[in-house]
Nucleic acid binder design. Sequence first.
DNA 1: TAGTGTGAATTTCTTCACAGCG
DNA 2: CGCTGTGAAGAAATTCACACTA
Lengths: 210, 210
Amino acid sequence: MSRLPLYLRSLVSIAADGTGTVSSDQLGQAAGVNAAKVRKDLSYLGSYGTRGVGYDVDFLIYEMSRELGLSRERAVVIAGAGNLGHALANYRGFVDRGFPVAAFVDTDPRKVGSSISGVPVRDVAELGRLVADRPGCIGIVATPAAVAQEAVDNFVDAGVTSILNFAPSVVAAPQGVNIRQVDLALELQILSFYAQRTDIGLLDGTDASP
Amino acid sequence: MSRLPLYLRSLVSIAADGTGTVSSDQLGQAAGVNAAKVRKDLSYLGSYGTRGVGYDVDFLIYEMSRELGLSRERAVVIAGAGNLGHALANYRGFVDRGFPVAAFVDTDPRKVGSSISGVPVRDVAELGRLVADRPGCIGIVATPAAVAQEAVDNFVDAGVTSILNFAPSVVAAPQGVNIRQVDLALELQILSFYAQRTDIGLLDGTDASP
DNA sequence: TAGTGTGAATTTCTTCACAGCG
DNA sequence: CGCTGTGAAGAAATTCACACTA
C-alpha cells in the first residue's frame, strides 16, 4: 500500500521519542490519516498489533522497511549536474535515509571529471559501468526539460529500472521501468488551485499512487 | 479536479508544437491518463470540445489557467536559505510558470541582508510585511526538519494560507491553511517499493489528492 | 466519420461498527 | 477496558459503451 512510507516516517520520529507502542489512532494522528485506514493498511502486512495495546514501534519499522525494500542501501545516480542536481547532492535527507548519491552524469565536458560536494561528475558513457557496480540503483533526472527523455533513455539503456524525474516534462519508458515524477512548479499550481477554493481545509498532500 | 495541472502542462507543450486541436486520446497519451478519464475531467469544466474534432488547445489552456487561479502571478517566499532553498531559488521552472521567488527568510543573522541568486535574505521579523505586500503568496518550507513546524507557524502568523513543505516532517496548520508536502527521500522509498514488485509496470507518479 | 459527452456498470478506496482478544 | 482486525456498508473514482453531432 502506498501510504507505507508515510507511516514509516512517522514511526521513525515516534521511535526517536522513545515510545515503544503506538495505537492506530496515534499513528493516524502523526501521519494525518484516520485510524480505520491505518488499521486496514497495517493488516495488509499481517496481524502485528496487540489488541488493547497497539503496535510495537520497532517491530513495525522493521516489517515496513522490509516490505519497502529498504533493508539495504540503494545508490542514486543523478543525471544533470546543474542547480537542481547540485541541491539534491547536498541534501542530507538522501544519505540519512539510505540513498547515498554515487555520482552525477553530465554531457558537458567542462564538468566531467570535477567533483560537486564530494560527488564525482562522470561522462554519460560511463553510466553503464556505474550502474552495473550498483545493483538496484535509482536514477534521478535533474536535467532541463528538453533533454529529460534522453536522460531517461540513457538510464534505461544502462539497466536502471527505477527513475525519479524532476524535469517538468512527461517522459516515456518501456515496460518494467518504474518512473515517478516530481514537478516542483506543478505542486505550486496545485496549491494555487486550492487557494481559491475556500471550502477546502487542511490537507496533507503527501501521497503515492498507481 | 486534481489532474488539471497535469493536463495543463501537456497542453502547453502541445501548443508549443503548433498544434491547434487535441483529442481526449492525444491529451491522455501526453499526460499518461486514459481518454475516458480525460473527457470526464474536462466535461467538469464545461462542454468545451467539438464532436468529431477535439478540443481547442489555446482555449483549454485559457480555461484551465483560470480554473487553477493561474491568471495572475503568485509570489513565493522561501523559509530557509540553505542548500535546498538555494536550489529552489535557482530553479527556472518557478519563474517560468508564474511563481517568482520574492525573498528568503532565515533566522541566521549572518545570512540576513545578503542575496542569493539575486533573491534577498530577510529576517523572519519582516515576514509579515513581505506577505502583506504580496497577496496570495505561497510559503515554501526549506528548513531542517527540526524547525519545519516553527517555519509553518511563522508563515501562518504572517497570513500565508498556502504552504509547500519540503522538510521530511509532517506539520500541522490551522483550518483554512493548505499544506502540501514533498518529501524527496519519500519519493525514493516509494520507488524502492515498486522496484521489488516486478508485477507492476510503468507508472507516472505525478498526482494530487485530497 | 471521428471524437465528444454522459448515464450506467464496475472497480477501488474509505468509513462504519462491532465481535473478540489481551 | 482499550484497541485490533475485519466483514459489510457506503462513497468515490474509473471504465465501459454508445447515442449523438459537427
